[in-house]
Simulated scan of single mutants.
Amino acid sequence: MKPLGGEETLDDGDVLAATKLPGHRGAAPSPGPATTPREQPRTTGEAHGQPRQGLAPRIVPRRSRLPAWLVLLRPRQWMKNVFVLLVPLAVDPASLLHHTGRALLTVAAFTAASAAVYVLNDWLDRERDRLHPVKRHRPLADGRVGPLGALLLGAGCLAVPVAGAALLPPGVTAAVAGYLVLNLAYCLALKHYSLVDVSLVAVGFVLRAVAGCAAVAAPFNPALIICVYCTCLLLSLGKRRHELEAVGLRGEAAEQRPSLAGYSVALLDQLMAVLLAATLISYLLFCLSATHPHASALAVVTTPFAVFASCRYAQLVTMRRSGGEPGRDVLTDTPLVINAVLWLAALAVGRLL
């Protein structure tokens, strides 16, 4: 998930998300006019973090100017926790305005919980990361943050949701606890299994959405929750597709993310097509289920924006080899940004009618 200080940092936990492809904006020049990523031999030394002889390294990491302990918490990923606010805003904006304090505290609880998960993930993988050409630059892997200091930092992050539990409704506390348990299992083992990995990522966003509704006492809309799950699963599949294309060969991709051994570009294209349809259907059901006198008109007016957003994302992933960082792709693509502004305007007008 917007580099800080104009630089591309590598604190998001995805080496493949930072890989540059020929034809993609910002891609590094290819080693030769007739050389493609698939044709470049991968040597044993490269697999252990050493650049190929005679060729420039594929990725030249730039160290973040942020303090190492803050990089370990991956602040670029904190934007994901906005999902806590989006669902209540779509279901019942008045409740969100009435309970703004509890909503922001819920965002803080998920931000701290996710930061603790990032610390745990890097702590568990620190030895393996030292052998990786890019992940070796993570604060734990390169020694800028010690193992004990990282554990203390993670414990400090966990103290935030624990303290917030006394101020938040039980439903929010349960959602945060479920998120932590889910990610613990993900870090320890489940991230290595294809389909399971992307499903758990999507469930994490569903827990954020549910917590947001519980925090402000907004109505629970099943269709919208399903839409959130399908959307996030679609984005995760697009990210896996980008990773496979970035490396070129499934075996090489599995060296960097073991779960990629269970995917292929053809399979991911089929799954993404299914998820595109499921996302649009669930969104339409959400519009039609709204307790609003003009719910049908709202669905008719806003569905074209949902269709365009889905199709544009599919175009970015398949035609422009994007999708490595879904958050950045969505926020920096001009057609998607314009579509989102018009979409929100249509929703606002529809609620005022």
Rank of each mutant, 00 (worst) to 15 (best):
Ala116Gln: 03
Leu153Cys: 07
Thr173Gly: 15
Thr43Asp: 03
Glu46His: 05
Ala185Asp: 08
Ala28Phe: 06
Glu255Ser: 09
Leu124Val: 12
Tyr118Leu: 14
Thr302Leu: 09
Gly212Leu: 05
Pro33Ala: 14
Leu180Thr: 07
Gln270Phe: 08
Val201Thr: 06
Leu4Phe: 15
Gln270Cys: 07
Leu151Met: 14
Leu190Met: 12
Thr100Pro: 04
Ser296Trp: 04
Arg25Gly: 13
Leu86Tyr: 03
Thr334Trp: 12
Pro61Ala: 14
Gly156Ala: 13
His132Thr: 11
Leu148Arg: 09
Ser199His: 08
Cys157Ser: 07
Asp333Ala: 09
Leu120Ala: 14
Leu89Trp: 12
Ala295Arg: 15
Val181Asn: 05
Leu182Asn: 11
Tyr118Val: 08
Ala159Gly: 09
Gly324His: 11
Gly156His: 14
Pro75Met: 01
Cys230Ile: 00
Ala345Asn: 03
Pro161Leu: 13
His99Val: 05
Ala309Ile: 01
Leu260Ile: 05
Gln50Asp: 00
Asp11Gly: 15
Gly164Met: 00
Gly154Thr: 02
Thr291Pro: 09
Gly238Val: 00
Pro147Gly: 14
Glu46Asp: 04
Ser236Leu: 05
Met272Thr: 10
Glu46Thr: 01
Ala214Ser: 09
Pro147Val: 09
Glu245Ala: 10
Glu245Gln: 10
Leu167Thr: 10
His137Gly: 04
Gly171Tyr: 02
Tyr118Trp: 06
Arg42Lys: 10
Leu285Gly: 03
Lys20Ala: 02
Arg312Ile: 08
Val228Met: 02
Gly23Arg: 12
Gln77Val: 04
Ser259Asn: 09
Phe308Gly: 07
Val196Thr: 14
Thr106Lys: 10
Ala209Pro: 08
Leu73Glu: 11
Val162Tyr: 02
Ala18Pro: 07
Ala115Val: 10
Ala348Gly: 14
Phe205Met: 06
Gly6Lys: 06
Leu260Phe: 05
Leu268Met: 00
Trp69Pro: 07
Leu336Ile: 01
Leu336Thr: 06
Arg320Val: 03
Gly248Val: 01
Trp343Val: 12
Ala113Val: 01
Leu55Ser: 12
Leu158Cys: 14
Leu72Asn: 01
Trp123Met: 03
Ala345Ser: 14
Leu97Gln: 13
Leu167Val: 12
Pro41Ser: 04
Ala277Pro: 02
Val84Asn: 11
Ala340Tyr: 12
Leu268Phe: 00
Gly251Tyr: 05
Ala155Leu: 04
Ala166Ile: 02
Ala18Thr: 13
Ala177Gln: 00
Ala17Asp: 15
Leu249Asn: 06
Pro293His: 13
Leu4Val: 13
Gly13Val: 13
Leu352Thr: 10
Ala150Phe: 00
Ala261Gly: 08
Ala185Ile: 08
Asp122Val: 03
Ala47Cys: 05
Leu188Ser: 01
Arg138Asp: 11
Pro51Thr: 03
Thr36Asn: 10
Phe83Val: 06
Tyr186Gly: 01
Gln40Asp: 06
Pro93Val: 11
Ala155Phe: 00
Phe83Asn: 02
Pro75Glu: 00
Asp197Arg: 09
Leu336Asp: 02
Val198Ser: 12
Asp11Ile: 15
Leu260Trp: 08
Ala345Tyr: 00
Arg208Met: 13
Gly23Pro: 10
Leu124Asp: 06
Ala141Tyr: 00
Trp123His: 15
Phe308Tyr: 05
Leu21Ser: 13
Arg208Gln: 15
Ala150Trp: 02
Ala214Gln: 12
Leu148Met: 07
